[in-house]
Amino acid sequence: MLKKLSLPEPGPFTQDWEYEVADDTRINEFLSFYESSSLNEEEKFALMIIIIGSINDAIEKTDVDESLLRKAKELLLKDIVIHTNTILYWSLENQDLEDCFAITPFIRCVKEMI
């Protein structure tokens, strides 16, 4: 997955690699790759974190195309067993939205569907 997406290898002391390689200019590419590639559960888990981080960055900067959000929601729900913890993390349940991630309202909507 790393080579096909031209993502840097995590270093020996890297933490939160998925968040470091998030790129709001590549959301569509990441979503397409997730959907069209044969990925194992670990790869799907990591790539979805990259996607969510990328969307979060994009929301912080500007509006995000609704089609990208729909696709992300579809993939999250399709592989809900893999992504439940990711959804719970980004939803920040019981937190005021002012203290949350930019993507939290979207993730909370997804969470309501599970």
Rank of each mutant, 00 (worst) to 15 (best):
W17C: 07
A22F: 05
K4M: 14
Y34Q: 04
R108D: 09
S54Q: 11
T25G: 08
P12D: 04
E43Q: 15
L97P: 07
F101E: 10
I49F: 01
L97G: 04
D23C: 11
L97N: 14
Y34C: 03
E66Q: 14
V64L: 11
Q15W: 09
K61C: 10
I80A: 14
T25N: 14
I107G: 00
T86R: 01
I49L: 10
S37R: 07
D57R: 14
C109N: 14
N94M: 13
I50A: 06
I52N: 01
L88W: 13
I114S: 09
Q15N: 10
L47P: 06
N28A: 13
E9G: 00
E41T: 05
A22L: 01
F13I: 06
L5M: 05
D99E: 13
S32F: 02
I80F: 15
E9K: 12
E98I: 09
S37L: 07
P10R: 12
F45S: 12
T62E: 15
Q95W: 13
T62W: 04
E20R: 10
F33D: 09
S32V: 00
S67V: 11
V110F: 00
S36N: 13
P8R: 15
R70T: 10
V81Q: 15
S36V: 00
F45N: 14
I103R: 08
N94W: 11
V64S: 06
P10N: 09
E98P: 00
M113I: 12
S37H: 06
C100Y: 10
D24L: 04
A102T: 06
P8F: 12
E29M: 12
D23M: 04
E60R: 08
K4G: 08
P10M: 04
V21Q: 10
V64K: 03
F13M: 10
D63L: 13
C109D: 15
E41C: 05
L7Y: 07
V64A: 08
L77G: 05
L31T: 03
M1D: 02
A46C: 12
E42I: 12
T104K: 05
A102M: 10
I59E: 07
S91A: 15
D57M: 14
E112H: 02
E43C: 03
D16N: 12
E9L: 11
L69W: 00
P105S: 04
W90L: 11
K73T: 06
Q15G: 08
I114Y: 09
L39H: 05
V110D: 00
P10F: 10
S67C: 05
I55G: 02
N85A: 14
I52G: 01
K3C: 03
I107K: 01
I107H: 01
N40E: 13
